[in-house]
């Protein structure tokens, strides 16, 4: 059911995004930072789901809060003539890699455990056959 929701959401979102008017280039920098923040929250949510400590409130607040905060920080940086968006990108992308590593390890672990189980089962079957 959640997967169907994700698929449908992606489809509808794509349709909306294609039909939306084009924003000017100066504001697309803010939007990019917001997207990076949101993606970070999504990967964080996936890894927390795998770790079985997913919290909807944390996820939603992180999704929107990080996006808005990063936009505000980027704006502030532009006013101060400091590239704060670089720091935001470093932090968010670094966390994304962390979360991706967690996800990768989880599935690697699962895969190796499954294979070991399979090998054991096969051996048992073979032993039975031999007997």
């Amino acid at each position: 059911m959640i997967f169907i929701a994700i698929l449908l959401g992606c489809l509808i979102g794509a349709l909306i995004g294609i039909n939306m008017p084009i924003i000017s280039y100066t504001y697309s920098g803010y939007l990019a930072i917001a997207i990076i923040a949101a993606l970070d929250s999504v990967f964080g949510g996936i890894s927390s789901t795998l770790n079985k400590n997913f919290d909807l409130k944390v996820f939603v607040s992180g999704f929107f809060g990080n996006a808005i905060l990063s936009i505000l920080l980027t704006y502030l940086g532009q006013k101060l003539n400091v590239d704060i968006y670089l720091a935001a990108i470093v932090v968010f992308v670094g966390r994304m890699f962390n979360n991706l590593a967690i996800i990768r390890r989880y599935y690697l672990n699962k895969w190796t455990i499954d294979r070991q189980k399979n090998i054991k089962n096969n051996k048992k079957v073979q032993q039975k056959d031999i007997k």
């Binding site: 059911m1 959640i2 929701a5 995004g17 000017s24 939007l31 909807l56």
Partner: peptide, 26 residues
Amino acid sequence: ITVVTVVIFIVCIVLVSVMFMQFRTI
């Protein structure tokens, strides 16, 4: 589970639409 589903649905819509906007802008 339904609340989670709805929230994730909305989040997906927002994220993907904004991403597509950005793609088109670029």
